[in-house]
Design a protein around this nucleic acid. Structure first.
Lengths: 200, 200
DNA sequence: GTCTATATTCGGATAGAC
DNA sequence: GTCTATCCGAATATAGAC
């Protein structure tokens, strides 16, 4: 949605939407996601509060745009770190990257990964981006030889757990980020162990 | 705090506080933790809104009481499932129990484990209960031969990750609860592997 | 300890002029 | 597209009578 348009009118509109969005993130990081107010937001972008409705149909619409924006950032982040070399080592770096990404912006992590705003649900269009990310993760796992749904479930739990502990108990640090490699190793060792037990 | 007193006057007061607290949980589960309103809460316990201030000094004080209450429930839950038999198997049951406990009440998990309410921070007295729980977990780990801080960190991430995925992607189900035993096994196998590599 | 009444502030959202 | 003006509702919290 809201791709930069050729029409200069729409282009400027999109640019302003982006400005507002960026300011919304800043404000949310400072005040808390749930405490984000359209009044404050308007003031920070040099508008009166009702004028925001030109750009966003409602507050939930703003949250939805932030949700989509956050997942676009995540997809871009993942795309920017191509898997190279041994796919199993790459999976470790992938996991560490995700934990770092979450840790880099707690509010973003809250919005993308937790259901914390009462009444907010992402629109289908925004949720599609979340699914796209999930698909990418499944690809990385497959490249490392992980296919079973149960294994995918466990991997997702490992990453989200590391991210959560990092954010909750060492914000800004790397205490759990550093454990990502080891955790993925232990995970892959377990997958192997089960494979050798089941097959042949 | 707020132990049942011998003084019948205080006892009735505490009883009413408990009633209000229970209703606050119910309301928070229905409307969301952040959307909890003192007006609705008062109505549901047959009081006018200002009368709540007799029992709680502020809304944050109510959250604080809920926080303490939640950790008391957790401590009771853990105490009710004594570790018996092989401490390593017991650790698996311990982890599964914790995931189940979180899954049983999403709002409680939100309040206890996430920083989701803008402006709320637990009081020292309430936070002490959280530390008490943490100490118990460390004991269980020690009984299973896990001592290193890094190992404790990983265990906490494993449990919180399973809980989070369970809540986010299969609320009311057991998809991730069921994986707890396997995850703890893989964890202990890794701890062993490292021990045998380092020592002797 | 409970009430009525009210202060105060703030929130999101809409109408309509320019 | 931006504004002023305003609506409407909701929130927490306090004052003071009973």
């Amino acid at each position: 949605m809201t791709l930069t348009s050729a029409d200069p009118r729409l282009a400027r509109r999109d640019a302003k939407r982006a400005t507002i969005l960026a300011e919304a993130w800043t404000l949310a990081r400072r005040e808390g996601l749930a405490a984000l107010s359209l009044r404050d937001l308007a003031e920070r972008v040099g508008l009166r509060q009702p004028s925001l409705y030109v750009y966003f149909a409602s507050k939930n619409d703003l949250y939805d745009a932030m949700f989509a924006d956050g997942y676009r950032q995540l997809l871009e982040f993942v795309a920017g770190r191509q898997a190279s070399g041994d796919p199993r080592r790459a999976l470790g770096r992938f996991a560490a990257g995700l934990v770092q990404f979450s840790s880099d912006d707690i509010v973003r992590h809250q919005l993308l990964m937790q259901r914390t705003i009462p009444g907010f649900e992402p629109s289908p269009g925004s949720y599609a981006l979340a699914l796209e990310f999930y698909g990418l993760a499944v690809q990385r796992l497959a490249a490392a030889g992980v296919h079973a749904q149960g294994d995918v479930d466990i991997f997702s739990a490992l990453v989200s757990g590391l991210a959560h502990q990092q954010i909750a108990n060492d914000p800004g640090g790397k205490r759990w980020v550093r454990q990502a490699g080891r955790v993925v190793e232990m995970f892959l060792a377990d997958v192997d162990r089960r494979r050798s037990r089941t097959h042949a």
